[in-house]
């Protein structure tokens, strides 16, 4: 047991470092991509091609004064930014980055991720509530209904894949898929993949579903009053969450680290990057949906489709068992 604990601790430190670094790269990618979508170069002053810009931004955020509004709840106010970031690191534990390259070989890996992902919503609610700001309160209220709603179709689409693979162990799910794209789960479960991606956008509050922080309505939503690293932590968690949902999609639908020629971790990184790039494209090309529409998409479309998909999958899995396994 102690060796496993040590392994987890070392991985957590590694994840913390990796998430920080990846988030910096992500900020740069997001700003560069957004710049080119908008016919402007994006950051290019700090470092070559503006590569050091996110670092400068991070330093600026750290140097800023941490302000807390009057009548805010100090304990909850400072707890929220920490609570939003720390559980995100735990989400990386069961992710198999390469063949045998994971922190925790756990049979309920998928469940662990889904369970801990709920923490993000919780800390947003705490932060929004503790600020004693009406905009933040509205943002927090939106977070509740949004994350509760979108967790369900996400879970259902993930379950469909687990039915096919017959395991909740992420490494096993990857192993079960083959090297080539037509062996991946996205081929057998295309609907689940689409449902997953849409719910992932809703779950991570990315545009066009960024309602908890819709700045044209709620100024900055749930993090209105946070300054400096208080805001920085929410910001970091958003990117970390994006990478988690993209990684889970890669593992469950896109064959994880499997792929021809290139080594496993590289394939994993490539697939995650492509998905994240897709999220970035969504953000800079679509308007924001309205709140009732957001919930309608979920309850009227995603949910019935996900349930139908799950039922069909279960049925076919059972039939297949009868036909071939006996």
């Amino acid at each position: 047991m102690p060796t496993e604990l040590i392994r987890i601790l070392i991985s957590l430190v590694a994840f913390a470092a990796a998430v920080g670094l990846i988030a910096l790269v992500m900020v740069w990618v997001e700003r560069k991509v957004c710049g080119h979508i908008q016919r402007r170069p994006g950051p290019y002053e700090v470092g070559p091609w503006g590569l050091l810009q996110p670092l400068a931004d991070a330093l600026k955020l750290m140097g800023k004064q941490l302000v807390m509004p009057d009548q805010a709840d100090p304990f909850l106010y400072w707890l929220a930014p920490i609570l939003v970031f720390v559980p995100v690191l735990l989400l990386y534990l069961p992710l198999p980055v390469g063949d045998g390259l994971y922190a925790l070989d756990i049979n309920l890996g998928v469940l662990l991720i889904i369970a801990f992902a709920g923490f993000t919503g919780l800390s947003m609610i705490l932060g929004g509530w503790a600020q004693n700001n009406k905009y933040a309160l509205l943002g927090a209220a939106r977070t509740v209904s949004q994350s509760v709603a979108y967790e369900i179709p996400m879970l259902l689409s993930v379950l469909a894949v687990c039915f096919v693979s017959g395991s909740l162990n992420m490494a096993a799910v990857v192993k079960e898929q083959g090297t080539w794209p037509w062996n991946w789960n996205v081929m057998t479960q295309p609907l689940a993949f689409v449902i997953y991606i849409v719910s992932a956008l809703g779950e991570t509050n990315r545009a066009p579903f960024d309602l908890p922080e819709a700045e044209s309505e709620l100024t900055a939503g749930y993090h209105t009053e946070y300054s400096g690293m208080g805001f920085g932590m929410f910001f970091l968690a958003e990117y970390a969450n994006m990478i988690v949902v993209a990684s889970v999609a890669t593992v469950l639908f896109l064959g994880g680290w499997q792929g021809p020629v290139l080594p496993g971790p590289l394939w994993f990184l490539l697939k995650v990057s492509l998905l994240v790039l897709l999220f970035v494209f969504f953000r800079w090309t679509y308007p924001r949906v309205r709140f009732d529409q957001l919930l309608n998409i979920n309850w009227k479309w995603l949910m019935p489709l996900a349930v139908a998909n799950l039922a069909l999958t279960a049925f076919f899995v059972k039939v297949a068992q009868y036909a071939f396994v006996k």
Binding site: C34, R39, Y286, R288
Partner: peptide, 16 residues
Amino acid sequence: YLLDLGAFTPIMYAFD
């Protein structure tokens, strides 16, 4: 207006 509706990009083209 599109900025109000959460679309960030059109304003850059409009300003062009």
